[in-house]
Simulated assay, not measured.
Amino acid sequence: MRIIQSVNRNALMIATFSFLLGTIIFLIHLITAWEKIIVIGLFYVLIAFILNAITFIGLLANTIVNYHYYKENLKTISIFLLNIPIAIGYFLIVINNPFLNTFI
């Protein structure tokens, strides 16, 4: 996918960074028994939520202003929103933790 608008490029970089950092924190939680990682994860989710909400509002504004790039804007918003079900899935796994004491 070719990205012309810098707003969309930046939003995709933020979404990728949020996904990678969230996945790293999630995997550290699953692999280690370090209890403070949950606090770090909650703090990260709060910061990521605020940053992603601001970015999403910017994407919506960009979609309205640059309506002639609607395909690129809609693809970017769709990819950007994929982090939501992933975060919910990670949250459900952490709450249920089927791997409790598996790696220890």
Rank of each mutant, 00 (worst) to 15 (best):
Y90V: 08
A48L: 04
I40P: 00
K75Y: 05
I104H: 13
F17N: 13
I24D: 12
G41A: 06
I3F: 08
I24G: 14
N101C: 08
N62Y: 00
F49A: 12
A11L: 07
P98V: 02
Y67C: 04
A87I: 10
N97Y: 06
L82A: 14
A53Y: 10
I47V: 14
M1A: 09
Y44E: 04
F19Y: 14
L82N: 13
T102E: 11
L82Y: 12
I47M: 12
V7P: 01
H29G: 05
F80W: 09
A61R: 15
L20K: 15
F49Y: 05
V45E: 09
L12S: 02
R9G: 07
F43S: 15
L20H: 03
A33L: 12
Y67H: 14
R2S: 12
A48T: 09
I88G: 05
S78W: 09
I88A: 11
N62P: 03
V65C: 05
L46Y: 03
N66V: 00
M13E: 15
I50H: 00
S18T: 15
I50N: 02
I104Q: 12
T23W: 13
N52C: 13
T102D: 10
I47S: 09
I14G: 01
I14R: 13
N83S: 14
K75N: 09
N52Q: 15
S18W: 07
N73P: 06
F17P: 03
L100H: 14
I95M: 06
L42M: 11
N62I: 01
I31D: 01
V65N: 15
I64Q: 11
A15W: 03
I28D: 01
I25T: 02
N10G: 02
I86R: 08
N8I: 04
N83L: 13
M13P: 00
P98H: 01
I86P: 00
F99T: 06
N101H: 14
N8Y: 13
A11W: 08
T63H: 06
L20T: 13
Y67V: 05
I88H: 04
Y70N: 10
Q5W: 02
N66E: 11
A15R: 05
L82M: 15
V94P: 07
T102G: 12
H29S: 07
A33N: 14
I4H: 10
G89Q: 11
Y67P: 01
L60G: 04
Y44P: 01
F91W: 14
I31Y: 14
K36L: 13
P85K: 06
N52I: 08
Y69L: 10
F80T: 08
N10K: 15
G58D: 07
F103D: 03
L30H: 04
I25F: 11
I38M: 14
Y67M: 03
E35L: 11
I28C: 07
N83F: 04
L12E: 01
M1W: 03
